[in-house]
Amino acid sequence: MLELVTDDLAAHGLVDFSLRRAAKAAGTTHKVLLYHFAGAEDLLREAVEVLRERRVTSSLAAAFDPGHGQSLAERVRALWPVLTGSGEGQRALDQALGLAMYDPERHAALAVDAADRFLPPLRAMCPAGWSDERKDEVAELVFAALRGFLVQRRTGGVAGDVGGEIGFAALVRMLEREEAVG
């Protein structure tokens, strides 16, 4: 059921999301969904998590593809097209981030879960010789910068696309310099 609801969310986004719409997508009733989920918010959170997991899996596959290079900068460069693309559920994930910012008391988990999922692989991309503290700092910086560039691209029109790309290029250069320092 969750996969079917997630597919509907990917296709139609969060606008007008309800238990009835989710039940229709899953081929069941809203009462059956309430048996399995605590409510519409719980179902939404779980469906967003499935979408995010699909996106994380795709972007990390690109980042760890041996054909893209092994440095942190090269791996971050490889995952960027996946993050900026119009792939499955992108609109719903963007809307989920907006919802988390709009009403953090109710929906903060929609954004926090992304950090929890992305930070460990970003740490793993850092050079082995770096201290754990440095890996943590750089992973947090990369995650925050990528999130900011994505928001800029999604909300800034053509200027946002240009600004996001300029910022991303600067981030990659900074990572190259950081790695060169050792």
Rank of each mutant, 00 (worst) to 15 (best):
T6A: 15
V50F: 00
F118N: 02
V151A: 10
E46R: 14
K24G: 15
L19T: 14
S18I: 02
A11M: 12
A26L: 09
A170H: 09
G87M: 13
L51Q: 03
G13D: 05
L83A: 08
F149I: 01
P104E: 14
R153T: 09
G39R: 09
E88H: 10
R123S: 01
R173L: 08
R20E: 06
E165S: 10
R77Q: 14
R75H: 05
A26I: 03
Q152A: 11
P127G: 14
R177W: 00
Q90E: 11
P127S: 15
T6M: 09
G67Y: 00
H68L: 04
T6Y: 08
P127E: 15
L175S: 10
R91W: 11
A159N: 08
A180E: 12
V15A: 06
A159R: 12
A47N: 01
G67M: 00
D65Q: 07
G87N: 07
H68E: 13
L72V: 03
V172Y: 04
A145E: 14
R173P: 00
A26S: 13
D94G: 04
G148A: 07
M101L: 11
M1D: 05
G182D: 00
L4Q: 11
K31M: 13
A22K: 05
W80G: 04
T6E: 11
G89V: 09
E179R: 08
E49M: 06
P121K: 01
S18A: 02
A38G: 10
A128Q: 10
A145G: 12
G167P: 14
A23N: 10
T155I: 14
V181T: 07
D136V: 02
D161N: 06
L83R: 10
R123P: 05
F64M: 14
P120M: 04
K31I: 10
L146W: 08
V32M: 11
P81S: 00
F37H: 12
V76K: 03
G87V: 12
D103T: 11
D42S: 11
A114M: 12
G156I: 13
G87Y: 10
E140K: 05
R123T: 04
R154N: 02
L141V: 07
V142G: 06
E176F: 00
D8M: 05
A73E: 06
R91I: 13
A169L: 02
H36S: 07
P66N: 08
D116P: 02
A11D: 14
T29H: 12
L44F: 15
V138Y: 02
T84K: 07
L14W: 07
R134D: 15
R20L: 06
R21V: 08
E178V: 02
G167F: 05
P120H: 08
L175G: 13
P66C: 02
A73R: 05
A180Y: 00
E46S: 09
L2P: 03
A115V: 10
E88T: 09
V82K: 05
G157E: 09
G156T: 12
E49W: 01
V48G: 03
R54C: 03
S131H: 04
E140I: 11
E179P: 05
Q95I: 04
V158I: 14
R153V: 11
L150R: 07
L44G: 15
F118M: 13
S71C: 00
V151H: 03
V142H: 01
L79T: 02
F143E: 03
A170G: 07
L110A: 01
Q90W: 14
